[in-house]
């Protein structure tokens, strides 16, 4: 099986679990019970948490927020990054010089710290996290697209199109975009992985989606306190983050190669 296929299988599994979470578990994610911190058993596969909620149900439901954040952030990153990269790569010269400086500046900023700062000011919400993570990831998309656009701009088929009277308005959508599509798709998947990972880190640091809705990073944080009582409480959401990030990473890196 190729990397790409492995990645796809993982992603499909995670998406399926998140989408059909209510059907897959007998408990609602916010439904509290009488057994606190019960270890895994037949009724609660991953046990219960400190408020008596079913950990499995919370992990499955938590996937929804993570996927929305991941895909949303990657989408925002591409919406900013692709046009910026195309512009810099195709125009070259001064435009490229300035665009590259801005990209380098943004890449130099530590994404997690920036996200922490902004969420601390604006307050955590799914939309805010999507926007922030999208904003810190766009330069990577832009830089990659720029490099490819730069190469393709010099291709003979682009020169042939120019010889037939084509201008940028024709060449960029007809030749450059289709040829960078593969790279964009790959970077999209990698950005999803990055965003899910970072959003979990944010939640872990207490700046994630506000409770009580389930979210992996937050669960890991609480789970850490009870590691010796119900280890699954922290390990299950960690594994979920790992599997999802791995899935998107495999898809992204496999697509590029």
């Amino acid at each position: 099986m190729t990397r790409r296929a492995c990645g796809l299988v993982l992603i499909l599994a995670v998406t399926f679990a998140a989408l059909f979470a209510p059907l897959l578990t007998a408990y609602a994610p916010t439904q509290t019970g009488v057994f606190f911190l019960a270890p895994p058993d037949a009724a609660h596969w991953f046990g219960t948490d400190d408020l008596g909620r079913d950990v499995l149900s919370r992990v499955l439901h938590g996937g929804r927020a993570s996927l929305v954040i991941g895909v949303g952030a990657a989408f925002v990153a591409c919406v900013i990054g692709v046009p910026a990269g195309l512009l810099a790569g195709y125009c070259g010269g001064r435009v490229d010089l300035w665009a590259t400086q801005v990209m380098n500046l943004c890449i130099a900023l530590p994404g997690l710290v920036l996200a922490l700062l902004i969420t601390a000011v604006t307050g955590p919400s799914v939309l805010n996290i999507v926007l922030i993570l999208g904003f810190v990831s766009w330069p990577r998309v832009a830089r990659l697209v720029r490099g490819q656009a730069f190469l393709i701009r010099e291709a003979l088929f682009v020169e042939a199109a120019r010889a037939a009277g084509a201008d940028a308005v024709w060449i960029v959508p007809m030749h450059i975009l289709p040829n960078v599509a593969g790279v964009i798709a790959a970077q999209f998947a990698l950005t999803v992985a990055y965003a899910i990972f970072t959003s979990s880190s944010l939640s872990f640091l207490g700046l994630g989606i506000p409770p009580p809705s389930p979210d992996w990073g937050g669960m890991v944080r609480t789970g850490l306190d009870y590691l010796s009582i119900n280890p699954a409480m922290g390990l299950a959401p960690s594994a979920a983050v790992g599997i999802t990030v791995l899935g998107f990473y495999l898809l992204g890196s496999g697509t590029r190669g």
Binding site: A155, L156, F157, A160, M174, H175, P178, N179, A181
Partner: peptide
């Protein structure tokens, strides 16, 4: 090879 767009 280079004078034809591989995606076209």
């Amino acid at each position: 090879i280079g004078s034809l767009d591989p995606t076209m």
